[in-house]
């Protein structure tokens, strides 16, 4: 069974739920899926389907990068850490000094994106700094 067949439900759902610039390529036995979902809920759903086909994502035959279209400048973001506070840093990198914290589940706003990984945010106290995008989820 080809990878496209194995992950047919995932690809079909991505397509039908309005994922922009959807790209599906198979290279060296790994299916690369990327695109921009219209909302965080669509992204979550795609990851749930991926986890259903490949429990705990352990096979290693998919690399999926789904961005969220609503994560634009000025957007509200929720801090989605496990439970701890999110470090806000002076510059984009974990070697940069910490200048503040954003609380777990706090709503912050997106000032700009330095890269896919490092976003400049403003906390509810008005502090501005860089935080890692993996802990920020656009609020619909």
């Amino acid at each position: 069974m080809s990878l496209q067949d194995k992950y047919k439900e995932l690809i079909d759902t991505a397509r039908s739920s309005g994922t922009d610039n959807l790209q599906v390529n198979e290279t060296d036995g790994v299916l690369h899926i990327s695109g921009e979902a219209p909302s965080g809920a669509v992204k979550d759903n795609l990851w749930n389907i991926y986890g259903k086909i490949d429990p705990n994502f352990l096979t290693g035959d998919v690399v999926m990068d789904i961005k969220v279209a609503t994560a634009v400048e000025g957007a509200k973001l929720e801090v989605v850490t496990q439970s701890s506070n999110l470090n806000v840093r002076k510059g984009p990198g974990t070697d940069q000094p910490i200048i503040g914290k954003a609380g777990h589940k706090e709503i912050v706003s997106l000032v700009s994106k330095h890269s896919d990984q490092w976003w400049l945010i403003r906390t509810k106290d008005g502090e501005e700094g860089y935080a890692h995008a993996q802990y920020l989820r656009p609020v619909e």
Partner: peptide
Amino acid sequence: KQALDGLHPKKVDAA
């Protein structure tokens, strides 16, 4: 896994 995939590696091997 979501964060690692966002870096576009060739593969994420979790064996």
